[in-house]
C-alpha cells in the first residue's frame, strides 16, 4: 500500500515535470526588412496569424519585428529564425552576406542575376523574370496571339485552396492578395511548417530543411520546393485583361507537374 502511494506520487511528479517542459511556449522571432506599408508585409502578417494558430497546438509563438531596408549590424540578427526581405536587387546580396547562415526570403526582387548567383542563404519566393517569361511563352505557344502576363498569385484565384487563402486574407486585410502578399504569406508559412517539423528554430537547421527537405503547400495545387539556385518551384497564373486565363506549366506545351519547365537556371553567375 505504502509502496503503491510512493510509486503513484513519483509518477505524478514525473508527469507534472514532463507537462512543465511540454507547455513551455517557445518564441520564434522573424525579422521583416522593408516597410509596414508593404503589401508583402500584409501577407507576412497573415502568415504570422496562421503560424500562431498552428503554434497553439505546439506551444510555439511567432513574432515579427520590422526594420527599414539597409545593411544591419550582426546583432540585429541575433535570435532570428528567418529574415523576410522586401528590398531591391542591389541590397539583397549585401543583406544576405551580413546575415550568414540565416535564411533570407526574397519577397520582391525578380532579377535572374540573383538566381544565377546562388547565394547560400537566399530563398527567392517571388518568381524570377525567366519564370514569368517562360510561363507567357508556354501560353502563347498554346494560344497564339494571346496577350497575357504571368503572376505568382491573383485575388480571384479559386482553384485548389486558392479560394480559402484569398477569403481569409481579404477578411483580415481588406485587400486582394497579390504576388507580394502571397510571397510574404508563403515565406512565414514555410518557416512555421519547417519549425513545427524540426521542433527547432535555429536558423541553420531551418535553412538546411528549407533547401533540402521542404514540401510546401502554397495553395496552388502543387508541392513546392527550392531549386539549388534558391528559387521556389511553383506554378504560375496567366492573366489576361485582369482575369485569370490559365496556369503554367501550360498543359499540352509542358508536363503540368514539371515546375522546372519555368525559368530554371544554373549557378553560372556564382562568384
Amino acid at each position: 500500500m505504502r509502496v503503491n502511494i510512493k510509486i503513484s506520487l513519483a509518477i505524478l511528479m514525473l508527469w507534472s515535470a514532463l507537462q512543465g517542459v511540454a507547455f513551455a511556449t517557445t518564441e520564434i522571432r522573424l525579422l521583416y526588412i522593408g516597410s509596414e506599408d508593404d503589401t508583402a508585409y500584409m501577407g507576412a502578417r497573415q502568415g504570422l496569424s496562421e503560424a500562431n494558430l498552428q503554434g497553439q497546438f505546439l506551444d510555439q509563438k511567432y513574432v515579427v519585428d520590422v526594420r527599414a531596408p539597409g545593411v544591419l549590424p550582426a546583432e540585429a540578427f541575433s535570435g532570428v529564425a528567418a529574415i523576410l526581405a522586401t528590398v531591391n536587387a542591389d541590397l539583397l546580396p549585401a543583406l544576405a552576406a551580413s546575415a550568414t547562415g540565416v535564411p533570407v526570403f526574397n519577397l520582391q526582387a525578380q532579377e535572374d542575376s540573383l538566381r544565377t548567383a546562388c547565394i547560400a542563404n537566399v530563398l527567392h519566393v517571388i518568381p524570377s523574370e525567366a519564370m514569368l517569361q517562360d510561363a507567357v511563352a508556354q501560353w502563347q505557344k498554346a494560344n497564339p496571339g494571346a496577350q497575357v502576363t504571368a503572376s505568382a498569385w491573383h485575388g480571384d484565384f479559386m482553384k485548389y485552396a486558392g479560394r480559402d487563402l484569398n477569403k481569409r486574407f481579404r477578411a483580415a486585410s481588406g485587400q486582394a492578395m497579390n504576388d507580394a502578399s502571397w510571397a510574404g504569406w508563403a515565406a512565414v508559412k514555410m518557416t512555421s511548417d519547417t519549425v513545427a517539423r524540426l521542433n527547432d528554430a535555429s536558423p541553420a537547421a531551418v535553412l538546411k530543411f528549407l533547401r533540402q527537405q521542404l514540401k510546401f503547400d502554397g495553395q496552388k495545387g502543387a508541392e513546392m520546393s527550392f531549386r539549388d539556385s534558391g528559387q521556389l518551384r511553383q506554378p504560375l497564373l496567366l492573366i489576361e485583361k485582369g482575369k485569370i486565363a490559365g496556369e503554367a506549366p501550360v498543359r499540352g506545351v509542358a508536363d503540368a507537374d514539371d515546375l522546372d519547365s519555368l525559368g530554371n537556371s544554373d549557378c553560372s553567375g556564382q562568384k
Binding site: Q54, F57, D164, D217
Partner: peptide, 8 residues
C-alpha cells in the same frame, strides 16, 4: 486540417 498539416 489541410492548411495546418495536422491530424487533431
Amino acid at each position: 486540417s489541410e492548411s495546418t498539416n495536422m491530424l487533431h
